[in-house]
Simulated scan of single mutants.
Amino acid sequence: MADRLTIVTWNINSVRLRMPIVEKLLAELQPDVLCLQETKCPDANFPEKAFRAAGYEHMAIHGQKGYHGVATVSRRPLGEIEKREFCAMGDARHVAVNVPFNGAVLRLHNFYVPAGGDEPDREVNPKFGHKLDFMSEMQDWLNGSETSRPAVLVGDLNVAPYEHDVWSHKQLLKVVSHTQVETELFEKVRERGGWLDAMRHFTPMEEKLYTWWSYRAKDWSKADKGRRLDHIWVSQPLAGAVRSAQVLREARGWEKPSDHAPVVAVFEC
């Protein structure tokens, strides 16, 4: 009998503040696994009861007060939880788990890559240097034994790598998230591990594809000045099992929304 697995990744921009729309998504979509970024709360304050009430008994939480934070919640048991630190900063930006799938397990990485500040120059903006160093550590680690097995990498990676991943390639070339130094390093991370970009696998390169729209726009949907900052990568041993990957755009318009929309991937073997 075929096994079907649905994974959602979503930068929630404060899990406690936006728990009503998280519960809405879980009720309507009923994914097997939900990966959240920017949870903005320490582990002790994570709303575990609400997730258990929704049927998500299994959790891997890596949070901190007021900043960053990632969490993976699941209806399936989670094994071998790992919380990796990058750049010796002590930030809560990664958690990995094993998820049962098709009689075995897949390794699921949940990332929140640093945004990088406003100025794309590491000499004047340490935040930008931190972002580049973070991705360099990803490049060194996420290959070999990490990608020779069934694995999925999801999260807010804070880079829009391709021309049509932003509303205006020309106007954003010098804007953090779409600069050449970021996009080239981003591709090195992905290519060294042999990761499949699941979203672009199902959406042609010439089509616009966004997951984030700024709060600054009075009508975010009409202005549609988006960027694709959220990603789903799949290792080659699992690539044949990906059935779909799409943005749940309507969630950006829910009450008191995050500025990111969820991304949904379905796997089946």
Rank of each mutant, 00 (worst) to 15 (best):
Lys65Gly: 05
Met138Trp: 15
Arg216His: 11
Ala265Cys: 14
Thr183Phe: 07
Gly155Phe: 01
His68Ser: 13
Ala44Gln: 15
Asp133Tyr: 02
Lys225Val: 04
Ala92Asn: 07
Leu106Phe: 08
Asn158Leu: 07
Asn11Trp: 07
Cys87Pro: 00
Pro257Glu: 10
Ile12Thr: 03
Trp212Arg: 04
Leu106Cys: 05
Gln171Asp: 15
Glu123Thr: 13
Ala261Leu: 08
Thr203Tyr: 07
Lys174Ala: 13
Ser235Lys: 04
His178Trp: 08
Arg84Leu: 15
Leu34Met: 13
Leu26Ala: 08
Glu38Ala: 10
Ile21Ala: 03
Ala251Leu: 08
Met19Gly: 01
Met199Asn: 06
Met138Asp: 05
Ala261Arg: 05
Phe101Thr: 06
Pro262Arg: 02
Ile81His: 05
Phe267Val: 06
Gly240Leu: 11
His231Arg: 09
Val124Met: 09
His58Trp: 15
His130Asp: 04
Val263Gln: 07
Lys83Ser: 04
Tyr56Thr: 04
Val33Glu: 07
Pro31Glu: 08
Leu26Phe: 07
Arg84Pro: 01
Phe111Gln: 06
Asp121Ser: 10
Asp3Asn: 13
Ser177Gly: 00
Thr147His: 06
Ala104Ser: 15
Ile21Lys: 04
Arg252Thr: 05
Ser221Asp: 12
Ala54Val: 03
Asp224Met: 10
Thr183Gln: 06
Glu82Trp: 14
Leu34Trp: 04
Gly240Val: 11
Val242Gln: 05
Gln30Cys: 14
Thr203Asn: 14
Val124Arg: 12
Val247Lys: 03
Trp141Phe: 09
Glu146Leu: 09
Glu28Met: 12
Leu173Val: 14
Asn13Thr: 08
Ser145Thr: 14
Leu248Ile: 12
Leu173Thr: 14
Arg249Ile: 04
Lys225Cys: 09
Ala265Asn: 07
Trp212Pro: 00
Glu48Pro: 12
Ser221Tyr: 12
Trp254Gln: 10
Asn11Gly: 07
Tyr210Pro: 00
Ala241Arg: 13
Leu26Arg: 04
Val176His: 02
Tyr215Arg: 13
Leu5Arg: 06
Gly194Phe: 02
Asp140Trp: 01
Met135Lys: 07
His68Leu: 03
Ala92Ser: 14
Val70Phe: 05
His58Arg: 10
Thr203Cys: 09
Leu36Lys: 02
Val159Ser: 01
Pro120Asp: 08
Gln64Trp: 00
Val152Gln: 06
Arg16Asp: 00
Asn45Ser: 13
Asn110Met: 13
Asn102Ser: 13
Gly79Gln: 11
Arg76Ala: 09
Val22Asn: 02
Met19Phe: 15
Lys40Asn: 11
Val264Ser: 11
Asp91Lys: 14
Leu17Ala: 14
Phe134Ser: 02
Asn125Arg: 07
Phe101His: 02
Val181Ser: 13
Arg243Glu: 15
Glu146Trp: 14
Pro120Phe: 09
Ser168Asp: 15
Phe111Arg: 04
Arg122Ser: 12
Pro31Gln: 12
Trp213Lys: 03
Lys65Cys: 03
Gly253Cys: 12
Leu25Ile: 09
Lys218His: 10
Met135Glu: 03
Pro114Thr: 03
Leu5Ala: 08
Ala92Val: 02
Trp220Met: 06
Ala245Gln: 06
Trp167Ile: 05
Glu119Cys: 11
Val99Met: 07
Val113Met: 05
Arg249Ser: 12
Glu182His: 09
Glu163His: 13
Ala96Arg: 10
